[in-house]
Amino acid sequence: MLTMTNLEGCYGRSRALTGVCLTVPKGQITGIMGRNGTGKTTLLKTIMGLTDNTQGTITLDGKDISAAPSHMRARAGIAYVPQGRGIIPDFTVRENIVMGGFANRSGRRAVPEKLAELFPYLTANLDRPGGLLSGGQQQQLAIARALAAEPDVVLLDEPNEGIQPSVVEDIERVILRMSREFGLTVVLVEQNIGFLRRAASTFAIMEKGRVAQTGRVEDLTDAIVDRHMTI
């Protein structure tokens, strides 16, 4: 379980999160929604320790990780799939995946076996430079890199943004399997309400840098969506 209390995150001097409190249940998918600029990406970055002057507390399974540097959070079992995917273009597919293994607690740095079945394209092209892959393939690669760490928690920032529909289905299927088969806790920032309703068990809506509403996904009515998401 990942809990955040009174979390504040800044970029330089501008504050992007103001007192976020959120509990992410273990082994389930929590959907984070909200309009642009409400702090969804900052929330994920703050969990990963990538923002400046973070205040408040973050605990992972009861352990306080608020003071830990990013690489220690990664080694505590949090993996991050950022917006824009963060692929190293001149690393091969294999190197990009193995890079995730630096956070693996068993010290194993290798391409995970289950990847062959999850992302057959990647396992067939391990020696291609990551920069030559399409957007959807890079997204799969970023997820594969996260899985190479064998994490407990995966933070996904709009994994389907700007990706062709046929690949979106593949990625959605993998996200569902991450929680249902592998038992991972997933924090999913997602604009697609349809997918979020199918995948997530709980949701949180962000507004102006704070959590405006949380609840079980069954209670996510169209009225709530309209109030917080329509422009």
Binding site: R75, M99, A149
Partner: peptide
């Protein structure tokens, strides 16, 4: 590999467990 990852993207390197 750590060094080259840091050259390209230090934040992502840290998020992958590399002690930058």
């Amino acid at each position: 590999m750590k060094v080259r990852a840091i050259i390209r993207n230090p934040q992502m390197a840290a998020a992958c467990g590399i002690d930058v």
